[in-house]
């Protein structure tokens, strides 16, 4: 596990030196523009507009980083052959994968935390104060982070057995499908055969459920998120990531490098 930590810290350092965190400048500019605009155009709905915009931006920026860097975590190391010298050290392939995953999640955590801080500052500026109900925004940010961890795990899995382009397509495709898992589960039985119905239901449980992470409406209106949902999403992410990373390690441990 210590070796995975060494890989993780280096992955974080790579992201910092490759200027990945520069996206924060874009986020800051967006938030400044939004805070100015919201004062001009909205009366009484500042919270809704700012929180919706802020959480959406955190989510989109995080998703872009998760998908593109997540796929590059392993494929870049294989393409550039930086992996060769590393795997000749006493490090197991699953430790390497876990380290890469941990490093990117650490990067996303720092990035998301910085954006969340920016969002809170803008809320403070627009509302002239923060209340207890605003903690729901932090829960929303936490859920986004959980979602991003899941996306990174999926991107890592796909990059272990296919080309980077296909891995990006698979990850994005699965993310989009994962946003509609509830619909898949609730498809009317009348229009399908029993077998098909059972299949879609089974599939809906197998696919990653990204719908549960979306609490933007609640956060925008300052409604509290149930504690059970926080616990459920945390456990779901832990279990799902463990399964996906185990599969990735199984594939990668048998993979011949170029």
């Amino acid at each position: 596990m210590r070796r995975a930590g060494v890989v993780a810290l280096n992955t974080f350092r790579e992201a910092v030196r490759d200027r990945v965190l520069y996206n924060l400048v874009f986020f800051a500019l967006l938030m400044i523009a939004a805070s100015v605009a919201v004062g001009q155009i909205s009366i009484g709905i500042e919270q809704t507009v700012i929180v919706s915009l802020g959480l959406s931006a955190i989510s989109v920026i995080g998703l872009l980083i998760s998908v593109f860097l997540g796929v590059a975590l392993v494929s870049k190391e294989m393409d550039k052959r930086t992996l060769y010298a590393l795997l000749a050290k006493p490090v197991r392939r699953w430790e390497f994968l876990l380290g890469k995953f941990g490093g990117l999640v650490l990067t996303l955590t720092v990035n998301t935390a910085a954006m969340a801080l920016g969002l809170l500052l803008v809320m403070l500026y627009v509302k002239h104060g923060l209340g207890g109900s605003d903690t729901v925004v932090l829960v929303g940010v936490y859920f986004i982070l959980l979602k991003l961890a899941l996306v990174v795990a999926l991107a890592l899995l796909f990059s272990c057995f296919t080309t980077p382009l296909l891995a990006i397509l698979f990850t994005v495709g699965l993310y989009i499908v994962g946003l509609y898992v509830q619909e898949l589960r609730n498809l009317p039985v009348q229009v399908m055969s029993p077998a098909m119905s059972a299949f879609t239901k089974w599939l809906s449980y197998l696919l990653p459920n990204f719908e549960n992470f979306n609490v933007m409406a609640m956060a925008a209106h300052g409604r509290a998120v149930p504690g059970a949902l926080v616990l459920q999403n945390t456990l779901y992410t832990l279990v799902y990531c463990t399964i996906v990373l185990t599969a990735a390690a199984a594939v990668f441990s048998r993979r011949n490098l170029k």
Binding site: R3, V6, N10, R13, E14, R17, D18, K80, R81, T82, Y84, A85, L86, A88, K89, P90, V91
Partner: peptide, 29 residues
């Protein structure tokens, strides 16, 4: 692998690191 040293053909290392950093990184393992 603790007792093995390996130089790959046409080696390439993390280009965002300095020589000291890359050696320190590998030494940590």
């Amino acid at each position: 692998h603790r007792d093995i040293g390996y130089l790959p053909e046409q080696p390439y290392f993390y280009d965002y690191l300095t020589a000291t950093e890359v050696l320190d990184y590998f030494a940590r393992f």
